[in-house]
Structure formats: structure tokens, C-alpha cells
Nucleic acid binder design. Structure first.
Length: 480
RNA sequence: CGGGGCAUGGUGUAACGGCAGCACGAGUCCUUUGGGAGGAUUUAGUUCCAGUUCAAAUCUGGAUGCCCCGACCA
């Protein structure tokens, strides 16, 4: 009997992190494997999280003046070939359509791995004058990259994302936009995902193929590996030149515009799962949780149950500014329900039994701490709001603390190697910015340069690898 | 693409070359419900192709698929 019970339980996060991650996704109903290798199904639970992320980002984009549009899934292969770095970066992972309508295609079509080329082809038609600028568009879509080793949410052949693309008349405006996009992502990660991280510039080797500079937000996962949360690229004039973007400026001169692009994908959900979850299952931050509160009536006897259900529905109505579910399922014990909702990560549980009815108070249980409290029916909305705010804050503080505790300053290469072998995490160290050091360091420690943090100070030091003079401390980590 | 492993009901697993069993799930009925309830009853399986053998889930060869570790990557 005992054994069966153990079997149903989730593997402990601390014991087998990779298995925990996979199991918690399948068991909590976020997603499932699809019959096509490397592809996944977003089940309603998982898709609802994505919808919440979309809502938040979409609103911020619109406030900035970015408009939504949609471009085709198929891109003529020759478009991708125009920018040399771009095609070199993406060609190993392209899905290509060679047959259409039963006929061999004269011109092969690539399923978009990203949409720069087809969007900029259109931009070149639309932009004539300084009056057409800035042009700021975003699209919500799917993209396909033929990955070798897929993992649910983190790396799938097809994934969902948004890609913003902007064109500006001046370099200053362009820079402002790249920074805005990154800052926006950072704020969303910190305020909504409740995940802290470091943000900064990518190295030449790690930047987007075709970009001038790439900026990023890097988060630390519980196993000490880093996950790139988003990217914001300064494309400079690279793409503008190859796609022939030009405009007539106020001074009557023809000029080449400046461009940015930036994206955030469903991979972010993977971070959400890994960072906050525990041995019980998911823990979703209230701001992104599909259900923020679950009301569980505790049934006892026929007649009394009706009152319970009535009260539960009444409470749900009084909490209409929150996302609330009531669990009226029969045939499952309360214990079973508690465990299930914990697995699904609902931030706050409201228990309602005869005891509560009598005392005119509801029992509130926090998912993050397990803490129980009694809240009078008369002030429920207020208490619930406070509890959800606390949970949101607490999750962020935990994430922030974890990152700080696992960020180390290192000046000695042996120490660097040892850390990357054992506890991993972020390492801040001097780097001479020579790509050879970067490559060798990766070979020997599996760690890559994650970013040059924006707050990195100009200092004098020696490269962690080659001992040559270096000016800045970069952040290193092994990555997903 | 390199290295390793696995393939049995819907899921997880067991069976020396000799009757394919167990648990979970699902269905029906009854009793239950303050931390993963109990009883009765029903349900469905050896990845594919060949070989060895009186006899193959089990041995051999091949195919296919999946998982893990590398390289690649949002």
C-alpha cells in the first residue's frame, strides 16, 4: 500500500531536477508530448499562462506605440541568404519546404526561424520618407528551428513567441528603442514572473546572427545553469543595407535607417516552472497564474453541502477582481484535492467547511509557504489581495536571493573550473574579450560568456583565461 | 551527427526459452470526504520484419521509435 502511494508522488526537485521538471509539466497538465518529435502540445493550463504573458507584454508594446501585424510563415530561401551572418547562423536548423501542391518548387520556401528577412523586404516598400518613421511593429507567432535535443518549453522544434521590429531615422532613437525593449522585458520578468536575473550585452560570439549588438536578460535556474530570457538586438544598418531600406530625410538627403528587433518566447514558461516549483509541484506567481485562488468546499453531509456550495459561489462573486476556481468535484477526498491544486501551483487556497461557515471566516493557505490564516468573510477581498501580493513579493525575493548566493567573483582559473564542476551558478570574472579565450573556456568548463552587465565598472584586471589585461568583469555560466 | 540505454494493457512495471502477472488509471454500483478513502465488479498488452527452436516477451540479426550524455540552440 505504501509503495503505491509513493509511486504517485512527484520525484523530489532536489533529488532529480531533470526528471522533476519533466514530470511536473506532464502531471500538472501544462503540456504533453506531441506525436511529432521535438514538438509539444500546450494544454489549457499551459496556454493560459502564455495568454497572461501575452496580455502583459502586448499592453506594454501598445503603450510604447508598437502595433501588431502578421507576416507569412513561409520565407523565400533567397531572402535569408541576403545577410551572410544571418543565414550562416540559422541554416543548420531550418525546415525547408521543397514540394507544394504535389509539385517540386522552383524556389524553396523556408519555414520562418525568425522573420527579419520577410518583414524587412516589406519595410523596404513601405518606407520612403522621414514621415514613415519610426516604424514599430510586433508579431505574435510560431517559429520553427530544427533542434537536436528538445526539452519541453525550453527547446522545442516549434515554439511561440513575439518578435518586435522597429525602424528609426537616427542612431540615438534606435539605441533608445533597444534599451526600452530590454528594460521592458526585465521589468516583466521581475514584476510578473517574479524572477531576478542579470541584464547586459552579449559577446560577439553569442550575439544574434546579423546583429550589431545583442542585449539579454539571463536568469539562474536551481541547478546552477543559466537561461536566456529574452533578447533585444541593435541591428544597426546591417539589414537595412541588404534589404535596401532608405528614406528621404528632412534635409532632403537620402539616408539609411537604423533597426532593432526583440523577442520573448514560450521558453520563459520553462523558467517559471523551474525557478519557483518545489517538491509538491508548481508554484505560479499570482500575476501570471491562470487561477489565483481555488475554493475547496469540504463536504460533510447532504443538506449542509448545499449551503457550502452556495457560500462558495457567493465568495467567488465577491472576489470578481481575481481569477477564482471552485472545486466541486465529487469522488475525490479533500486531501487529494489539496495535493492536486498544489501540484498545479495555484498561489492561494481557500478552504470552506462547516467550521468556516460557523465562524464566518475562510481558511487561506499560501502555496509558497504553506502558511494558514483565517480571514473574515467581511474583508475577504482585502485579505486575499494582501496574501497574493505577499506571495508575489516573496517569490521574487527568493529568486533574487538565490541568484545573489550563486553569483561568485573569481580571479583564479582553477577556482573557476572547480565552481563550474560543482555548484555552478554565475561567475563574475575579467575577460579580455578575445573570442579564442571564450571558446577554450567553453571547451574546458562548459561555461560560456552570458553577458556584460550594464552595471559593470571599468576596472583594471587580468583575463581569467589568458592573463592578458582586461577591463571589465563579464558574467559566465553554463547554459540551457 | 558521435557515445550509451530502453522498447510488454491508456500509464508504470514483472515473468529461467515453457499458463503473460501486478499496480495505477478508466467504467459501473455501494459506502466515504478537515491532507493523496474502502469494498464489489468490468476493462485492455509483448514495436515491426526475419532467423534459431518442439516451443520466443525472453536468444540472434535488421528496421523503427523513444530516453539519457555530448555538439547546436530562444
Amino acid at each position: 500500500m505504501k509503495k503505491i502511494f509513493e509511486k504517485e508522488k512527484l520525484v523530489k526537485k532536489s533529488e532529480d531536477f531533470a526528471k522533476w521538471y519533466q514530470d511536473v509539466i506532464l502531471q500538472s497538465g501544462l503540456a504533453d508530448y506531441a506525436p511529432v518529435k521535438g514538438c509539444m502540445v500546450f494544454k489549457p493550463q499551459g496556454f493560459a499562462i502564455w495568454e497572461n504573458i501575452q496580455k502583459v507584454l502586448d499592453q506594454k508594446f501598445k503603450e510604447k506605440g508598437v502595433k501588431n501585424a502578421y507576416f507569412p510563415l513561409f520565407i523565400p530561401e533567397k531572402f535569408l541568404k541576403r545577410e551572410k551572418e544571418h543565414i550562416e547562423g540559422f541554416s543548420p536548423e531550418l525546415a525547408v519546404v521543397t514540394i507544394g501542391g504535389g509539385e517540386e518548387l522552383k524556389e524553396k520556401l523556408v519555414v520562418r526561424p525568425t522573420s527579419e528577412t520577410i518583414i524587412y523586404e516589406m519595410f523596404s516598400k513601405w518606407i520612403k520618407s522621414w514621415r514613415d518613421l519610426p516604424l514599430m511593429l510586433n508579431q505574435w507567432c510560431n517559429v520553427v528551428r530544427w533542434e537536436m535535443r528538445p526539452r519541453l518549453f525550453l527547446r522545442t522544434t516549434e515554439f511561440l513567441w513575439q518578435e518586435g521590429h522597429t525602424v528609426h531615422g537616427t542612431q540615438e532613437e534606435n539605441l533608445e528603442m533597444v534599451n526600452w525593449a530590454l528594460e521592458n522585458y526585465v521589468n516583466v520578468y521581475r514584476d510578473f514572473f517574479a524572477i531576478d536575473g542579470i541584464w547586459g550585452k552579449k559577446s560577439e560570439r553569442e550575439k544574434f546572427p546579423g546583429a550589431r549588438t545583442t542585449y539579454t536578460f539571463e536568469m539562474l535556474m536551481p541547478d546552477g545553469k543559466a537561461l536566456q530570457g529574452c533578447t533585444s538586438h541593435n541591428l544597426g544598418q546591417n539589414f537595412a543595407k541588404v534589404f535596401n531600406l532608405k528614406f528621404l530625410d528632412k534635409d532632403g538627403k537620402e539616408k539609411i535607417p537604423w533597426q532593432t528587433c526583440w523577442g520573448l518566447s514560450t521558453r520563459s514558461i520553462g523558467a517559471l516552472i523551474m525557478v519557483h516549483g518545489d517538491d509538491q509541484g508548481l508554484i505560479l506567481p499570482p500575476k501570471l497564474a491562470p487561477a489565483q485562488i481555488v475554493i475547496i468546499p469540504i463536504f460533510q453531509g447532504k443538506e449542509d453541502d448545499k449551503n457550502l456550495i452556495k457560500k462558495a459561489e457567493e465568495i467567488k462573486k465577491s472576489l470578481d477582481s481575481f481569477r477564482v476556481e471552485i472545486d466541486l468535484r465529487e469522488g475525490h477526498s479533500v486531501g487529494w484535492k489539496f495535493n492536486e491544486w498544489e501540484l498545479r501551483g495555484v498561489p492561494l487556497r481557500l478552504e470552506l467547511g462547516q467550521k468556516e461557515l460557523k465562524e464566518k471566516k475562510a481558511t487561506l493557505v499560501r502555496r509558497d509557504t504553506g502558511e494558514k490564516s483565517l480571514a473574515p468573510f467581511s474583508s475577504l477581498a482585502k485579505e486575499v489581495k494582501e496574501a497574493l501580493d505577499l506571495i508575489q513579493k516573496n517569490l521574487f525575493l527568493k529568486s533574487s536571493r538565490f541568484m545573489k548566493e550563486n553569483t561568485r567573483e573569481v580571479s583564479d582559473y582553477d577556482a573557476f573550473k572547480l565552481i563550474m564542476k560543482k555548484e555552478k551558478g554565475f561567475i563574475r570574472a575579467f575577460w579580455c574579450e578575445n573570442p579564442d579565450c571564450e571558446a577554450k573556456l567553453k571547451e574546458e568548463t562548459k561555461a560560456t560568456v552570458r553577458a556584460l552587465p550594464f552595471d559593470a565598472e571599468e576596472e583594471k584586471g587580468k583575463c581569467i583565461y589568458c592573463q592578458e589585461p582586461a577591463e571589465k568583469k563579464w558574467v559566465f555560466a553554463q547554459t540551457y
